[in-house]
Every structure is written in structure tokens, then in C-alpha cells.
Design a binder for these strands. Structure first.
Length: 487
RNA sequence: GCCCCCAUCGUCUAGCGGUCCAGGACGCCGCCCUUUCAAGGCGGUAGCACGGGUUCGAACCCCGUUGGGGGCACCA
């Protein structure tokens, strides 16, 4: 099997597009085939090199390594369509020569006028009228300075195929007009270039979004022509993947912020977490299981079992899956992944100093199970790497109101006198002072202390955090919180 | 408007004629654990769009209806 991913390098990277890449990758890996990447940059107005680099970087980050394609080459290169003009020119010449394609001089206005004259809806589009253009007419058009587009002559037969995910699909003969392969200015269109390259690159299975389903009949016709002139060895199998939907009930569009792949990466989703979630959008590994590694996916993935329903992107579930992967990370691995986020926020040096590394190592196991994405560490652990802590106003409202002053005073007094600064000693002292001494319920006793020390209502376990913070900083923070406590 | 695709809990899904008064996960709600919040454990909530067939038997097959989605460029 040979599958491919052929993005157009424009703007941001879309999660739906990456899901398609993932399925292609997984299918190739599952079958022991090859995964080919090709850059479809035939629209110079919209394509940028920067965008291409970013796309490839996202693929690499997700772990979707390709066997042939940009940057690594391969036997069917070049893998960038902007570098394949001669190939297309040659194919078009042969298509024209064999009569599968023809020059078409009608302008869109003329087509519409003909439709209107016949009392038809102009939405019907091109009417195949130029199939019969004579040499004399052609010469006249050329003399007028007209440019011709090149169109494929569609066969007069139903077009059907067996789709990997949808089964038999059929389009009636005549449903698709002769479509344009080459612009008037001579540059080729996606409609030509995509099947030509798939043919030339030996792609056996085309897995792509359902939004391309209705362009399949055209491609089938082109493949037949290409096979006839010896460019293609046959027609690939197709599999049309369910669309990824957004919040509403519409295809997740590029304009939708949720569709931007970068935001997940930047927030600190793990590649394996995102792979896992994306895989679930239309496929399941087993009846009672939905957490798995990319390798497990590749081992189990089969396109024929992909679900045909459109799938809504559910951030909550994506986060839950990611959190599971995060917790499953070995601690040292977790530390090395989280450190860049802390460094990025200016909390630790890059790399962390010996002291910071020691703190990180001590707190990591406690922090790991409280996080969803890596960037959560910034808020959760920031208090350990700064002299002072900024208290979250909402947390202050909640915990530094009535009765907090008394708690903070008692905590300070108990901790000041502590002979040794260890987690068990802190625990004992605080419980004695607050729970027994003041008769507070644990949740009321420790809430204000937690906010004073960490600045938040959610933090790693309290006593351990205090030990790591040291007596001086802890007492300083209790005093600072006492200053703003209202009760 | 035309063509095509789709239809199981709020969401993602399992189910491919009987083993399903429909299983898992996220979410949500309880309870337990507990120093907060989480995490973890336990339990609960909620679904086969509708109508006809076919069949001894239908979530599964067929037809229709309704609903949703996608596509109809000299974009990709």
C-alpha cells in the first residue's frame, strides 16, 4: 500500500487535515506500505514556503514520519508541485493528442448566457458545448486573442467506485460536466495535478476528507484517460473520511480558532495525546478501550472500519485523553517535557539550574496528576520558583475572607517554632494548630494557608510544597496574605 | 436549485439478523477516599430520528419521510 498526504501550504494548519494525515500514516504503517508527502503548491498567490515548513514541522512533531517527500526525496520526486511543471505539460499534451481532453474557448459569461437562453439554471455550469469546436473556429478565437482552457471529455457512463469507508458510491452519467484541467494562462489546476501525481507516485489508496467526495467522479474519468495514455497504471482505491465538525454543526473551518493545530501544540498537548484523540474522530481501537499509543494505533488501524459519520471535535474529551497520557509519562520524561514551558514563562532557566532541577524533581510526581496540558505547570508550579507569589484575586475572595486572619496567624506561629522543616513536621504542626487548636474543619483550616502559599486554590499537596519553599519564604507569604486578608 | 454523503446516550463511539429491555469513553450528578483542587474507586443519568416493509426474529437488510452535512470555480 502507498498512501499520501498532500497539503496545500496556505495559512494555518487545520486539525482535520492532520487527522487525514494521521489516518494515511497509520494505514501505511499498518500495512507495511509507504507514506508519501507531497506539497500541492500550484497556487502561487496563496502558497508560502514558511507555511510549508510549518506543516512539515507539525507532521514531525506528531510523529508522522514520511518515507518519501520534501526534505528527504524519493524515487518519484520532486515532491513539490511547483517543481513539476514539465511533467504536467507533457501529460496535458498527450491528453489533448489522444482526444481525452480538448481546448475550450467559452467564457463563463457565454456559458451562462447559453444556459439562460435554454431556460436553464446557470448553476448547471459548463455545457460541454466546446467539444465540437472546429479548426476554423479555433483559429478565429485565437486570432481574436482568446485563451483556451483545457477540459477533460467526460465519459458517457455512470461513474462508480467502492469507497473504503462508504461502500458503493455512484454518480450518474452526465452529472459532471467536462471540467477544467489547465487555466487559460497555461498553468495546471489541482483537478489535473492531484491525480497525475498520485498516479506517477504509485499511490494505491487515497484517504481524504469527505469534502472531496464529489470530485471523485472527475478523478475517476481522468484516471481512465491517464491509464489509456499510459501515464497511470490504474485507479487507486478511495476512502472518504468523515468531516471534523466544530462547535456548531458545520465543518470546522480554517477561520474557526478551534481548528488551528498550533493552539493544541502550544498549550502543551502531548503528541501522543493528540494522536490518540484525533484517531478517535471516526475510528475506535476496541469496544471498551480508547487510550492507546501511536504504535498501537498503527498496529490496529484499518480504513475499512472507519466510521462514516461526521465527528464533532470535543475539547473536553481531547483534554481528558491528553491528561491520561500525561499521567502515564515516566517522571523524568514528564520533567523534560514540562521544563521548556516553565522556561518559556521565565520561571526557570533554560536549562534549569541545579536547585531548580531539584525542586522540579521533587514536585513533578505531585504535579503530574493535576495537569491536563504541559502549560498548566506554569500556573500550578510558578509559586515554587519565585520569591513572592501573586495571589489570584478569585482565590483570595474565596479563602482570605472571614476567619482567615486567625488561621494565618496560628499557622505562622506554629511554623515559626518548628524545630525541623520537613513535610511530616509541618503536617503535624499545622493540624495541631489549626484543626485542634482553632477547632477548624480541615477544608477551612487549610484553604487560606494554601492560597497564601501558592496563590491559588489548586496546588500540589500543601505540606510538600511548603517544605520545598523553605521556612523563610513560607512565613513571608503567610504574612503577606495576612496583610490582605479581610477577616 | 442540482448532485452526493450521513443518521445509536449532550459528545466520540461499539454493534456488522438472535448472545442488546444496546456496551465503553468524555461530560454531568451522587457517594467513598481526602488538607483544598485534582487524581483514584464506586454508582447513577442519558440513545437505536420517524414510517413502512423483508424475516420466525431487526439498532443491524430494503424503501420512503424527516433531519443534518458536503459539493456544485480558470481554489485546493
Amino acid at each position: 500500500m502507498r498512501t499520501r498526504f498532500c497539503p496545500s501550504p496556505t495559512g494555518t494548519v487545520h486539525v482535520g487535515v492532520m487527522r487525514a494525515a494521521l489516518y494515511n500514516w497509520a494505514y501505511a504503517r499498518h500495512t507495511g506500505g509507504a507514506f508519501v508527502v507531497r506539497i500541492e503548491d500550484t497556487d502561487p498567490a496563496r502558497n508560502t514556503l514558511e507555511s510549508e515548513r510549518h506543516l512539515l514541522d507539525c507532521l514531525r512533531w506528531l510523529g508522522l514520519n514520511w518515507d518519501e517527500g520534501p526534505e528527504i526525496g524519493g524515487p518519484h520526486g520532486p515532491y513539490r508541485q511547483s517543481e513539476r511543471s514539465e511533467v504536467y505539460r507533457d501529460v496535458v499534451a498527450r491528453l489533448l493528442e489522444s482526444g481525452h481532453a480538448y481546448e475550450s474557448f467559452s467564457t463563463p459569461e457565454e456559458v451562462n448566457a447559453r444556459r439562460a437562453a435554454a431556460g436553464q439554471d446557470p448553476k448547471l455550469g459548463y455545457d460541454n458545448a466546446d467539444r465540437t469546436t472546429t479548426d476554423a473556429q479555433r483559429a478565429a478565437f485565437l486570432a481574436e486573442g482568446r485563451e483556451a482552457v483545457v477540459r477533460l471529455r467526460m465519459p458517457d457512463a455512470d461513474l462508480t467506485w467502492h469507497d473504503h469507508v462508504r461502500g458503493e458510491v455512484r454518480f450518474a452519467a452526465g452529472a459532471v460536466p467536462d471540467f477544467v484541467l489547465v487555466r487559460g494562462n497555461g498553468t495546471p489546476l489541482y483537478t489535473l495535478v492531484n491525480p497525475v501525481d498520485d498516479a506517477l507516485m504509485g499511490i494505491t489508496d487515497v484517504l481524504r476528507g469527505e469534502d472531496l467526495l464529489s470530485s471523485t467522479p472527475r478523478q475517476l474519468a481522468l484516471y481512465a484517460a491517464l491509464t489509456d495514455i499510459g501515464v497511470a497504471a490504474g485507479t487507486p482505491r478511495f476512502g472518504h473520511l468523515p468531516l471534523v465538525m466544530g462547535e456548531g454543526n458545520k465543518k470546522l473551518s480554517k477561520r474557526d480558532p478551534q481548528s488551528n493545530f498550533d493552539v493544541y501544540r502550544d498549550r502543551g498537548f502531548l503528541p501522543e495525546g493528540l494522536v490518540n484523540y484525533l484517531a478517535l474522530l471516526g475510528w475506535s481501537i476496541a469496544e471498551d478501550r480508547d487510550v492507546f499509543s501511536p504504535e498501537e494505533m498503527a498496529a490496529a488501524f484499518d480504513v475499512d472500519s472507519v466510521n462514516a459519520n461526521a465527528a464533532r471535535f470535543d475539547l473536553k474529551k481531547a483534554e481528558a485523553i491528553n491528561a491520561t497520557h500525561l499521567r502515564a509519562l515516566p517522571v523524568d520524561e514528564f520533567i523534560s517535557r514540562v521544563a521548556p514551558y516553565l522556561a518559556g514563562a521565565g520561571l526557570v532557566a533554560d536549562p534549569p539550574t541545579a536547585e531548580q532541577a531539584a525542586t522540579l524533581e521533587a514536585i513533578a510526581p505531585l504535579a503530574q496528576e493535576r495537569m491536563i496540558v504541559l502549560s498548566d505547570a506554569v500556573g500550578l508550579l510558578g509559586f515554587l520558583f519565585a520569591e513572592d507569589v501573586e495571589i489570584d484575586p478569585a482565590a483570595a475572595d474565596k479563602q482570605l475572607g472571614a476567619g482567615a486572619g486567625e488561621v494565618l496567624d496560628a499557622a505562622s506561629a506554629a511554623l515559626e517554632a518548628l524545630p525541623e522543616w520537613t513535610t511530616p513536621a509541618i503536617e503535624t504542626a499545622l493540624k495541631e494548630a489549626l484543626v485542634e487548636g482553632l477547632g477548624r474543619k480541615p477544608r477551612q483550616a487549610f484553604g487560606p494557608v494554601r492560597v497564601a502559599v501558592s496563590g491559588r486554590t489548586v496546588s500540589p499537596p500543601l505540606y510538600e510544597s511548603m517544605e520545598l519553599l523553605g521556612r523563610e519564604r513560607t512565613l513571608g507569604r503567610l504574612a503577606a496574605a495576612r496583610g490582605i486578608a479581610t477577616g
